[in-house]
């Protein structure tokens, strides 16, 4: 469904992604693991075309994403949940959701405000509050809900557990499981191996922008040397 082929991305002169290739299949939750600065966020931003890869191809459902603008990528059905939450703090929860709304897609049950409030009951209680009145955890939930309003066919989650209280991380894991059950594939960028293992089917480990491991968590378990070398847990 999503295929990266020899992607190279630079920030100025710094080479961030180095010939990165991987695929993500229909209905799969894949976790992109690696330490800080390994290139996880850049991978996600490269897919969204928020940073432009210099070479390589990124194909989503047969569409070449290179050279598209971020909003065109989003309209193809890739939903992006950024690292630093980035909700619109001056807008109410309902208005935040409205910004994310896109037309329903063929063959998918469209998300509505009502169906999202079932998954995120906290947001319903505070639907007319402005974003800035929300706690960190609620803001993170709102970011996810806002992206789901765009009826994505693939969800990119960038470090959703960063800076969140452990108890909220547990809730988040439960939420992602629910989303997973709806059949939506997810690419989850994470540093927290415990969290990733709970929700993901497959792990991809990157280091200095290169892929170092691609396989099941069980295999990773059996191979502590990889884990210790690249994850520094």
């Amino acid at each position: 469904m999503l295929e990266l082929e020899s992607v190279n991305t630079y920030y100025g002169k710094a080479h961030i992604l180095n010939d990165l290739s991987f695929t993500l299949n229909e209905g799969e939750v894949v976790s992109l693991l690696g330490r800080n600065g390994a290139g996880k966020t850049t991978t996600v931003k490269s897919i969204m075309q928020l940073v432009k890869p210099a070479t390589g191809s990124i194909v989503f459902d047969g569409n070449h994403l290179n050279r598209l603008a971020p909003h065109q990528v989003a309209r193809l059905g890739i939903g992006y949940v950024p690292e630093e939450r980035r909700i619109f703090t001056d807008l109410t929860i309902l208005e935040n959701l409205e910004v994310g709304r896109q037309a329903p897609r063929d063959g998918l049950e469209p998300w509505t405000v009502e169906s999202l409030f079932k998954i995120f009951p906290n947001l319903e209680e505070r639907q007319n509050n402005r974003g800035k009145a929300l706690s960190g955890g609620e803001q993170q939930m709102l970011t996810i809900a806002r992206t789901l309003m765009g009826n994505p066919r693939l969800l990119l989650l960038d470090e959703p557990s960063e800076g969140i209280a452990p108890v909220i991380v547990e809730q988040m894991a439960a939420t992602i499981m629910q989303i997973k059950e709806s059949g939506l594939p997810v690419l989850l960028s994470e540093q927290n191996l415990h969290f990733a293992r709970l929700v993901a089917d497959r792990a991809i480990i990157i280091e200095s922008g290169e892929k170092k491991y691609d396989g099941s968590f069980a295999e990773l378990e059996a191979n502590p040397s990889i884990r210790d070398a690249y994850l520094s847990v």
Binding site: A165, P166, V167, E170, H194, F195, L198
Partner: peptide
């Protein structure tokens, strides 16, 4: 209850028998 959580996240992830929040 309000902050640390039940520890299920870490326990199941660790898979360690003693389990008491001992993550590497």
């Amino acid at each position: 209850e309000v902050y640390l959580g039940g520890g299920t996240l870490y326990q199941s992830a660790d898979g360690s028998a003693d389990g008491e929040h001992s993550h590497a």
